[in-house]
């Protein structure tokens, strides 16, 4: 599309605009539909951006860390811990392995038992935190060796419960993106209907325009411009309302988890700004297609 053509659509030609009579009903329909759809797109966007962030965070935070738990009678625990650390240090792909101190273990347990529990009197297993290197270690190989040398050690690499969570977040993101496509398609369909109604209602006008030598492209332009502008205005209003609603949602907080993190963050705020131009583009294409088909029909 040439620059001149874009300018013609945005700035227009006051005289050319008047050749098609203003049509109340289709104008309002287009404004309302594109406004409502833009509002929904903002939410779908917020949803997929938030679930995307969640998926990234979960997979990043948990990917590199694993825990080795050593269950043994208290008197054998230090010796077995030492053996485990040695094994880990010999395993390629383990970047570091560190036994948690009793204080650190107490801290981890305090949410469950309260801060005043005398942890050293309880038979707690020893925890070893493993940070994976890049490339990572061979999980199956490590498990095999541990089961041979340290039957009481359990390797917990979090993948078991991490994967379904990350999967869920990722499908939520895909669902959001899919909804945006659906909304775009529905908008195109509605605008096509509205444009067809406007074209049919103006068959007489189109005939007169042809009699005085109007090209099809000129007639189509008059309709395209209208619907494009209406979609642009409607979706701009919808986006503004959608963004205000998102702003009014509670701040992201650790306690609220996913639900409060639904807003946009940083550059995420720029995404909704793309919606009005895209809405206008959808209207442009939909009206253009409808107009070309109708004009061919009417000839």
């Amino acid at each position: 599309m040439s620059q001149g053509r874009i300018r013609k659509i945005l700035v227009g030609d006051a005289q050319a605009d008047r050749v098609v009579p203003p049509s109340g009903f289709t104008a309002q329909l287009t404004l309302f539909v594109s406004g409502a759809m833009a509002f929904l797109v903002v939410f779908a966007l917020a949803l997929s951006l938030a679930s995307g962030r969640l998926a990234d965070r979960w997979s990043q935070e948990l990917a590199r860390a694993a825990t080795l738990r050593i269950n043994a009678p208290q008197d054998q625990l230090p010796a077995q811990t030492q053996v485990a650390l040695t094994i880990l240090q010999q395993t390629p792909g383990v970047s570091s392995a560190k036994a948690l101190t009793p204080d650190e273990q107490a801290q981890l347990l305090s949410p469950w038992f309260g801060p005043d529990i005398p942890i050293d009197t309880l038979p707690v297993p020893q925890l070893i935190e493993i940070i994976e290197g890049n490339p990572g270690y061979d999980r199956a190989g490590l498990r095999l060796r541990l089961s041979a040398e340290l039957p009481g050690a359990v390797l917990d690499d979090h993948t078991r419960w991490r994967e379904p969570l990350v999967d869920a977040a990722n499908s939520l993101r895909r669902l959001g993106l899919f909804s945006i496509l659906l909304i775009g398609g529905a908008t195109a369909a509605m605008i096509t209907l509205a444009a067809n109604a406007a074209l049919a209602a103006n068959a007489q006008v189109i005939e007169v325009l042809r009699l005085v030598g109007a090209l099809d492209s000129y007639i189509a332009q008059a309709f395209i411009r209208r619907f494009t502008l209406r979609a642009l205005i409607g979706s701009a209003v919808g986006v503004v309302l959608g963004m205000i609603s998102i702003l009014l949602l509670p701040e992201a907080s650790d306690e609220g988890g996913f639900l409060t993190g639904l807003g946009f963050q940083g550059w995420g705020w720029a995404w909704p700004l793309l919606v009005p131009p895209l809405g206008a583009l959808v209207a442009f294409v939909a009206t253009g297609t409808a107009a070309r088909r109708k004009l061919r029909e009417l000839s």
Partner: peptide, 11 residues
């Protein structure tokens, strides 16, 4: 405007 219409549509 009607009399001017052929001018309008031919740009």
């Amino acid at each position: 405007e009607n009399i001017a219409l052929p001018l309008t549509v031919s740009g």
